[in-house]
Design a protein around this nucleic acid. Structure first.
Lengths: 182, 182
DNA sequence: CTAAAAAATGTTAGTAACTAACATTGATCT
DNA sequence: AGATCAATGTTAGTTACTAACATTTTTTAG
């Protein structure tokens, strides 16, 4: 193991391990910090909240870009749909173990799930601004984005329950197909 | 005013008033309790969390019933769509001031919004079980429900930002129309 | 190589949302 | 009136998080 982990990396790994072992509610920040050999203050300097170790979302810009690249003569719904499809295809199946663990833990706990939704909401605001920026009425944009992200989250939850089955990307495709023809 | 408020009613009203006046984060449970003339323990006996004063959801059974009443030869998406439409029509525009305040406060605060989403998730599980119970494959049920609830939340948020405009029911209709033809 | 500056971490003390255990009051019923 | 039961109060915790300041470690400059 030549790869020396940084402090936040170690904190996250210790945290995820403990969460899977004992359950999110039965692990204190103090325990995570101790396990990583630091104090609880160091934990909070790297992660704003306990939840944030599990919930994070670096894909927003990529998704926004993919949506904004869609032809503007399509309906808002179609543009979001196709944008999400392309973004999902672009990231392929390259999901590392930590990310998988985060999603698995996240969808199975109410508070974390709520935080994931709120995260999703941020993505949504971004997409809405992309759409309205190119002339789509605000209401239509919001609804289209809400619907697509809703089904995307469904695909995510479905995958988390059965990682061995179909790939996440494939499920996202299928989910968006249910919203209507391409 | 002959209507004597019960303790939980008073707590909720005091809480909502304070939240609107000072902002959710700047109000402590202690202050709410004091304002209602009780101790903080009494608050928590009536409301499991501070958030729950704002976020509550008594409509689940009605919605589930409306969805299960849809003809089973329709697609899952259509059944959820129409069920939500009927439920929304059934409750009409009879939204009291407290409920309006709750929605207004709820959609404008990250933590509360997250809690609303989580609440929504519960509704979703109910609807999914209704659909799968009548033969719809699990994945399709989840996605259809996710999409419909996503657009419904969009309608809710839209309405909260502009209560003076179109009624909530009308917006829900329009939102579900964007998902495709009836 | 060393001293100063900067970045990361530790310590301590505090706030606020809860929870548990037990005491107390108030209404209700016989 | 006395017993009973529900609603409330008191007190003392735990835990997530914040603020202020001390300390160490690392980087950089001379």
């Amino acid at each position: 193991m030549s790869t020396t982990q940084t402090t936040p990396e170690r904190l996250q790994q210790v945290a995820l391990d403990l969460f899977e072992e004992r359950g999110y509610d039965n692990v204190t920040v103090e325990q995570i910090a101790t396990g990583a050999g630091v104090s609880h203050m160091t934990f909070f300097r790297h992660f704003p909240t306990k939840e944030s170790v599990v919930v994070s979302d670096p894909y927003d810009p990529m998704i926004a870009h993919a949506v904004s690249a869609q032809p503007t003569d399509l309906s808002a719904l179609q543009r979001v749909r196709r944008g999400l499809l392309e973004a999902s295809a672009a990231m392929g199946d390259g999901i590392d173990a930590a990310t998988r663990a985060r999603i698995r833990i996240g969808v199975s706990h109410p508070r974390l799930r709520a935080a994931m939704w709120e995260n999703n909401h941020e993505t949504g605001r971004l997409l809405v601004s992309v759409l309205t920026g190119s002339g789509v009425p605000g209401f239509e944009a919001r609804v289209a984005v809400g619907a697509c992200l809703g089904s995307l989250m469904a695909a995510l939850a479905d995958w988390a329950e059965d990682e061995a089955g179909e790939s996440l990307g494939r499920r996202i495709e299928r989910a968006l197909e249910i919203l209507g023809p391409a």
